[in-house]
């Protein structure tokens, strides 16, 4: 997993609420057995018409946002299915950070496993950052994980909260399976105890 330390980039405004994982990556692209290559189908049904041509009015098709690295989104981003293909598609397109008032739990977790930082900020901050994002490619937003801040192009800074363990893993690009395997003896002990307490499991 790539580290996430600090990012300054173009932010695409997506004010729609409840952007679900079926919108982020429709089901026909879940048939892959790989993690890569999903970027071209990110937001597929919003991004392309029935003939596969780009819809001009979709934000990521506009010249200013074709290389966006951040999305500023409406409430409850990533609701729906547990498909990790959603963060894989975002990452493959080049998105490393999504900022919203709220995220669905499973999507939120999945982001951290893939080097994407989901940032939760209050509505007032989202309103300001959404305006900033609408200014196009000259308005670059900075996201700094170490200091837990988002800074708008005008220099307004917003502090965000992040779980210390998730922050540590993201800053260092850590594989948490490796970390857990170091605790194998604790798992052995738990299994032995559970075998006595709940032998039917």
């Amino acid at each position: 997993m790539d580290k996430f330390e600090k990012l300054t980039g173009v932010a695409a405004p997506m004010p729609l609420v409840n952007i679900d994982t079926d919108m982020i990556i429709p089901k026909q692209f879940l048939k892959t057995i790989k993690r890569s290559g999903l970027g071209k189908n990110l937001f597929d049904e919003m991004r392309y018409d029935d003939n596969g041509n780009e819809r001009e009015d979709f934000v990521l098709n506009q010249p200013a946002y074709r290389h966006a690295e951040i999305i500023v989104a409406g409430d409850n981003f990533g609701c729906g299915s547990s498909r990790e293909h959603a963060p894989w598609a975002l990452l493959d397109f080049g998105i490393r950070c999504v900022i919203s008032t709220s995220f669905a739990d499973i999507f939120f977790n999945n982001c951290f496993k893939n080097g994407i930082l989901p940032v939760v900020l209050p509505q007032e901050a989202i309103d300001e950052l959404m305006e900033d994002a609408r200014k196009g490619s000259n308005a670059r937003i900075t996201v700094d994980l170490e200091s837990q801040t988002v800074t708008s192009s005008d220099g307004n800074t917003f502090h965000f909260e992040v779980d210390p363990f998730k922050k540590h893993c993201l800053l260092n690009g850590l594989d948490d399976i490796g970390l857990t395997l170091e605790k194998a003896s604790a798992i052995d002990t738990f299994e032995a105890k559970a075998e006595t307490l709940r032998p039917w499991v």
Partner: peptide, 18 residues
């Protein structure tokens, strides 16, 4: 509850979740 694919791998390897 539901989990993502990275967590599927984590459970396969460790029978636990963080």
């Amino acid at each position: 509850h539901g989990i993502g694919t990275s967590e599927v791998e984590h459970v396969l390897a460790t029978q636990t979740l963080i």
